[in-house]
Simulated scan of single mutants.
Amino acid sequence: MPIVLIASFPAGPWQTNCYLMALQEGGPCVVVDPGVGATDGVRRGLQQYGLTLEAVLLTHGHVDHIASAREIADEAEVPVWVHEADADLLTEPLLALSADSRPILESLYDTTTFTPPRDVRHYDGPVTAAGITFETRHAPGHTPGCTLLVPQQTEQQLVLSGDVVFAGSIGRTDMPRGSSFAMASSLATQVLTLPDEAHLLPGHGPTTTVGAERLNNPWLQPHALMAMQQNTDDGSDY
Results as ranks from 00 to 15, higher is better:
97 L>Y: 13
80 V>G: 00
78 V>A: 08
143 T>L: 14
101 S>V: 14
83 H>Y: 12
70 R>L: 09
157 Q>S: 08
57 L>C: 06
28 P>R: 15
63 V>Y: 12
55 A>R: 07
163 D>F: 12
64 D>E: 15
51 L>M: 04
164 V>K: 07
80 V>N: 01
62 H>W: 09
160 L>T: 02
140 P>E: 08
105 L>N: 08
110 D>Y: 11
41 G>W: 01
33 D>N: 15
84 E>W: 05
167 A>K: 13
115 T>P: 04
113 T>V: 15
55 A>K: 07
75 E>R: 14
163 D>H: 14
30 V>A: 06
103 P>Q: 06
50 G>W: 03
23 L>W: 06
147 T>Y: 10
70 R>I: 05
112 T>P: 08
30 V>L: 05
74 D>A: 11
62 H>I: 14
70 R>Q: 12
137 R>A: 03
62 H>C: 13
89 L>F: 07
27 G>E: 12
146 C>T: 15
127 V>Y: 00
30 V>P: 03
42 V>Y: 00
73 A>M: 01
92 E>V: 09
91 T>L: 05
145 G>V: 08
150 V>P: 01
153 Q>K: 10
101 S>Y: 15
45 G>D: 03
22 A>N: 06
50 G>C: 04
67 A>P: 01
28 P>N: 15
112 T>N: 11
92 E>R: 14
111 T>I: 11
84 E>F: 07
74 D>Y: 05
72 I>V: 10
71 E>G: 03
160 L>G: 00
29 C>W: 00
44 R>K: 15
120 V>F: 05
126 P>C: 10
105 L>G: 03
150 V>N: 04
141 G>P: 04
135 E>L: 09
85 A>E: 09
165 V>F: 04
125 G>N: 04
38 A>P: 01
134 F>H: 01
61 G>D: 06
25 E>H: 12
134 F>G: 00
54 E>R: 12
159 V>T: 01
163 D>W: 13
108 L>V: 04
150 V>D: 03
102 R>W: 07
28 P>L: 14
31 V>D: 00
68 S>L: 12
65 H>Y: 10
42 V>R: 00
79 P>S: 03
110 D>L: 13
121 R>F: 04
124 D>F: 08
65 H>M: 14
136 T>Q: 02
146 C>N: 15
103 P>F: 06
116 P>R: 05
155 E>S: 12
96 A>F: 04
